[in-house]
C-alpha cells in the first residue's frame, strides 16, 4: 500500500522494493557501520532478532558489541544508554513497546530530558530511543497504546513518528547526529508495509511536517499509521469531488505548526487524526494552536478523530471501534463540507 505517494525523485537512478521493517534495519546497519560509536541495545534485539523482527540477522552480521541483548530492565538499560551517551558513545536503545517504556519513564523524563538544563548546559545527552507503538493487532491493553503524544509533552526531548519508508530509513541517522535525546516511535502495524525506496536513500530532516497530498477543501492532520487512514479517506473523498490536503506531522516535538497553519489558511477546515486518546493529547495541542493562531481562517470548528477513551480491548471488533478509521474521517469531512455547502 502506498496510497499514491510518489516516492521517486528525478535523480534516483535505482529504486528498490523494501518494507518499513527492512528500512529501519538498513538504517541501523548503516549507522553502526558508519560511526564506530553507534551500538544498539534492548530486549531480544540480538539472538531473538527483535520482537518485531526489525534487527533479525544484525547480531550475526555486526557482532555482540554492536547488537547487545539486555535483560528485562527498561529503566536500567535506558539509563545505561544515557550514561554511555555521556561517556562518548552514540547508543540506540530499543524499548520493545511504548507501554514498556513507562518502566523507563524515570530515566527518559527525569534524566535524559533534564540533564542539559540541570547542568546549566554542561552535559548534553546524544541518545536515541526507538520503540514500537500503536494498536490494531489484538494485543490488548498493555501492548497497544499510543503514548507518543505524552512524550511530546516533555521539553528536552524530540519525538519522531516516521510513517513513510523514507522516514523509517532516514530519521535514525538524523536522530543520531542530534546532540540531544531523540525518541523514535515506530507504529508496529507499519513494519510490513511495502514500497519503493531509492537504493541510496539517506538522512532526512527531523524538524518539519510534510504535505503528503495537496488539496483545497479540508486539511487532514495526522502522523504515523493514522496517516494512511487519512490518505485512504482522501482518496474516497476525491471521488466525491472533495479535495483533502493531508499533512504528515512526522515530528511531534518540536511541532512544525507553520505547515498546518498555512494549510488551514488555504482550506479553512481542519481534522486531526490521532491514535492517542483525545483528552490531553497531541491532537488537543494542535487544535489549540489552530484556534489560537488561525481562528479567523476557519470556516468550521476543528474536528478530532482519536482513539476512544478506553484501554485498547482485545476483541477485534471492539479494538477496531476504539481506533480511528478512514470511514469516520470521510463521514466527518462530508458533514463539515455540507454544513456550509
Amino acid at each position: 500500500m502506498n496510497y499514491g505517494i510518489d516516492t521517486s525523485t528525478d535523480n534516483s537512478p535505482l529504486m528498490i522494493r523494501t518494507t518499513y521493517r527492512e528500512a529501519v534495519r538498513d538504517a541501523i546497519r548503516e549507522a553502526i557501520l558508519k560511526d564506530d560509536r553507534v551500538f544498539l541495545m534492548g530486549e531480544d534485539v540480538g539472538r531473538y532478532g527483535g520482537a518485531f523482527g526489525v534487527t533479525k540477522g544484525l547480531l550475526q552480521e555486526l557482532g555482540p558489541d554492536k547488537i547487545m541483548d539486555t535483560p528485562l530492565c527498561e529503566s536500567g538499560f535506558t539509563g545505561a544508554g544515557i550514561g554511555a551517551a555521556l561517556g562518548g558513545m552514540r547508543p540506540i536503545v530499543e524499548v520493545m513497546t511504548v507501554n514498556f517504556s513507562l518502566l523507563a519513564a524515570d530515566q527518559i523524563l527525569n534524566t535524559a530530558a533534564t540533564y542539559l538544563h540541570m547542568s546549566g548546559g554542561l552535559f548534553n545527552v546524544p541518545l536515541v530511543i526507538r520503540m514500537g507503538t500503536g494498536g490494531g493487532k489484538q494485543l490488548a491493553a498493555q501492548h497497544s497504546h499510543s503514548l507518543e503524544g505524552w512524550y511530546a509533552h516533555i521539553p528536552g526531548i524530540k519525538v519522531l513518528t516516521p510513517a513513510v519508508l523514507e522516514d523509517a530509513r532516514g530519521m535514525l541517522w538524523s536522530a543520531l547526529e542530534d546532540p540531544d535525546p531523540v525518541l523514535i516511535f515506530e507504529n508496529t502495524l507499519l513494519y510490513n508495509m511495502e514500497g519503493q525506496l531509492p537504493a541510496n536513500a539517506g538522512a532526512v530532516d527531523i524538524d518539519r511536517a510534510c504535505i503528503r497530498r495537496v488539496g483545497r477543501d479540508v486539511t487532514l492532520i495526522s502522523y504515523s499509521a493514522s496517516l494512511f487512514k487519512a490518505l485512504e479517506a482522501a482518496e474516497t473523498l476525491a471521488q466525491e469531488g472533495i479535495e483533502a490536503e493531508v499533512i504528515d506531522l512526522r515530528v511531534l516535538r518540536p511541532l512544525d505548526e507553520a505547515t498546518f497553519l498555512n494549510s488551514v489558511a488555504k482550506t479553512h477546515r481542519a481534522v486531526i487524526i490521532d491514535e492517542g486518546w483525545r483528552s490531553g493529547s497531541i491532537s488537543a495541542e494542535i487544535s489549540a494552536r489552530i484556534t489560537e493562531k488561525a481562528f479567523y481562517d476557519l470556516d468550521d470548528p476543528v474536528e478530532r478523530i482519536c482513539a476512544a477513551e478506553v484501554p485498547v480491548p482485545y476483541a477485534s471488533h471492539l479494538e477496531q471501534a476504539a481506533l480511528p478509521q478512514a470511514a469516520t474521517i470521510v463521514n466527518t469531512v462530508r458533514r463539515m463540507v455540507t454544513r456550509h455547502g
Binding site: S75, G76, F77, T78, G79, A80, G81, I82, G83, A84, A85, L86, G87, G88, M89, P91, Q107, T111
Partner: peptide
Amino acid sequence: LPLAVGLALA
C-alpha cells in the same frame, strides 16, 4: 545508578 553503569560501559 544506571547512568554510572552506562558511563562505565562506554
